[in-house]
Amino acid sequence: MNQIIKKIRMLEKKNNQKDMTKINNTKAETSRQMVVLNVYRANTHRNDLPRVEKFQIPVQRWMTVLDALLFAKSYLDSSIAIRYSCRMASCGSCGMKINGVPKLACYTKISELQGNTITCEPLSNFPHIRDLVTDFSQFFEHHKEMAPFIHNNNADIKDENKLSEFKQTPQDVDNYLQFSYCIKCGLCYSACPTVATDTKFPGPQALSQAYRYYADTRDDLSNRRLNAVDGKHGIWRCHFAGSCSKVCPKGVDPALGIQLLRGHIMGYSRNENKIAKLRDPT
C-alpha cells in the first residue's frame, strides 16, 4: 500500500514538473522600460477616417495591455473608447486584435509580447462602432439561434415542493463542462476564416455551444439544435482551421465541440441515450 502511495506521489511530482516546464516555455517574458502603443482610432457614426495614434507607455511588471490602454486613457487621451469590465478574463469584454491576433487585453501581459510596439485594433468580423469597440449583436443572435439553455419536459419547475433533480455522473459532466466555460468574448469568431467570408455562418462560439447543450444529458432539445446547425451555411462550412481553439482564452476548444457535433450528425459517434434520470423527490 505504501509503495503504491509513494508511486502516486512520484507521478504527481513528475507531472507538476512537466506542467511548470510547459508554462515556462509558453510564456517567455521580455522586460523593457517603455513601449509604444498603437491604437486604432475611428468613429463609424461620424464617418471618421481610420487612423493609428501612438502613445508612449511606461511599463511596469505584470502590466497588461488593458492596463496600458487605461494608462493612455487616464493620462494621455481620455477619448479612447475601450470596452472592459472585470480585468480578469471572466467577462469577455476587452477582446481586441493585439499585434494582429485576437486576444483579451486584460489577459495579455506586455512582457509576453515581442518588440517595443504593441498594436491594438478592433476585432475583425464584428461591425465597428468606435476605436476598439465593436458591435456584438450579430454574434449574440447566432448564439441565441442555438437555444443556449437546458430544456426538459420532465422537469417540474412549477411545483416547488417537488423539486426536480437530475442524476449525472462525473463522465456526463466532463462531456460538456469545458464548452460551458465560454465567456462569449468573440475571439474565436474574429479568428475564424469561414466567418470572415460567410456572414450567415454561426461561427465557432455558437456551434460549440450547440454541442455543449447537445452533450448535456439533462437536455431534450437536440433535434432543434441539429436542425439549426445542419444547413447550407451551418456546421458543414467549418473546415477545421483550428484558429478558434488557438485564440480561446478559456480552453473551451470550440473546434473540438464542432467536430464532435458533426461526428454525431454523420454517425461517427453513437447517439447514446441522452436523457438523465430524474431523482426521486421522496
Binding site: 462531456n175 463542462l177 469545458q178 480552453g251 461517427y268 459517434s269
Partner: peptide
C-alpha cells in the same frame, strides 16, 4: 471532421492548450 483523433473533452487547465 467526425471528431476522430482529436481527444476527449475534459476539464481545461492553465495554460489552456486546446
Amino acid at each position: 471532421h467526425g471528431g476522430k483523433g482529436l481527444g476527449n473533452p475534459g476539464r481545461p487547465d492553465y495554460p489552456y492548450d486546446a
